[in-house]
Simulated scan of single mutants.
Amino acid sequence: MKNVSGQEYQTPRQAADELDISPQTLRAYSGLVEKTTGRADYFHRDQNNGRLYSAQNIADLARVNQIKKEHNKTLKDAISEVFEQQIIKSAEPAESSAATVPATTAATSATPQISSDSLAPILYTLKQLTDQNAEVVTQIHQLKTQLDETNHNYEHLLKAIEVRNTASANAASQSVANSSAAVAPSAASATSTASQAPKPASASSLSMASSSAITAPKKSFWAKFFGRD
C-alpha cells in the first residue's frame, strides 16, 4: 500500500491478489482499459512508471471481471460497458480537436498504440509454447532412439532364428544320410545269406524216389528169414 498525495494506492501484486487474478492478467486488463478509454494516464504511476491502483480502479476492474464471466462477454466489451462514461469524456476533446488538426495528424493519433504491458500475456504464452515444443522435440528424439534399438534387437533375433533353422536342417540331412548308409550293408548281408542256403529237393526227384520204392519187389517171409531171395 502506497500513499501518494494523501490517497492510498495498491501495487500491481496487491491489486492482483485482491482481484484474484495473476499480475499478467492485471497488466492485460489495465493496458486494454487505457487503450479503450484513450487515456494512457488512466492509472496513477510511481517514480518507476509502474501502475498504482486506487480503490475505485480495483472496484472497476472487479466489475469488468464479473461481467466477463457472468455474461460471457469479451474483455473489450466488458471494459467498454464499465468504462463507458470515461470513454465518452475522452472522445469529446478528441472530436473537437480533430477539426483543427490536419488529416495526417488525426490519422496518426487514431492509430492504436500497443503497450508493452498488453503484450506481456502474449509473450508469456509464447514462452510457454516454446518450452512445450522443445520438450516435445526431446521426447521425439528419445522415442526414435528406443525404436532404433528395438529394430536392432529384432534384426539380431531374426538372424539367430535363421542360423538355428539352418543348423537344424543340416542335422536332419546328416541323420537321414547315416540311416541310409546303415541300412544298405544289412540288406546286402541278408541277400548273400539267402543265396547260400541249401535248396529244397525238387518235386521230380521226390516223385522218382517214390516210384522206385513202390516198384521194388517184396521179399517173402522165408527169404527174409533165411536171408535169401
Score class of each variant (00 low, 15 high):
I140Q: 15
I140G: 04
I140A: 12
H141D: 15
Q142G: 13
T145R: 14
D148Y: 04
E149F: 06
E149G: 11
E149K: 15
T150A: 15
T150M: 14
H152I: 03
N153V: 01
Y154E: 05
E155M: 05
H156C: 07
H156L: 13
L157S: 09
L157Q: 06
L157F: 05
L157A: 10
L158H: 02
K159R: 13
K159V: 09
A160R: 03
E162Y: 05
R164S: 14
N165D: 15
N165E: 15
A167T: 12
A167D: 12
S168Q: 04
N170E: 07
A171R: 11
A171I: 10
A172E: 07
S173M: 08
S175I: 02
A177C: 05
A177N: 13
A177H: 10
N178G: 02
N178Y: 01
S179Y: 04
S180C: 00
A182Q: 12
V183A: 14
V183F: 09
A184S: 10
A184R: 10
A184D: 10
S186H: 02
A187M: 06
A188G: 01
A188W: 01
T191C: 00
S192T: 09
T193P: 00
T193L: 14
A194F: 08
S195L: 14
A197G: 01
P198A: 15
P198E: 06
P198Q: 12
K199D: 03
S202G: 15
A203Q: 12
A203N: 11
S204C: 01
S204H: 06
M208W: 03
M208N: 05
A209S: 12
S210F: 02
S211Y: 06
S211P: 00
S212C: 03
A213L: 09
I214A: 13
I214Q: 11
I214P: 00
A216F: 06
A216D: 04
A216V: 14
P217G: 09
P217Y: 03
K218N: 01
K218I: 02
K219R: 13
S220G: 13
S220Y: 02
S220W: 04
W222Y: 05
W222P: 00
W222I: 06
A223R: 08
A223F: 01
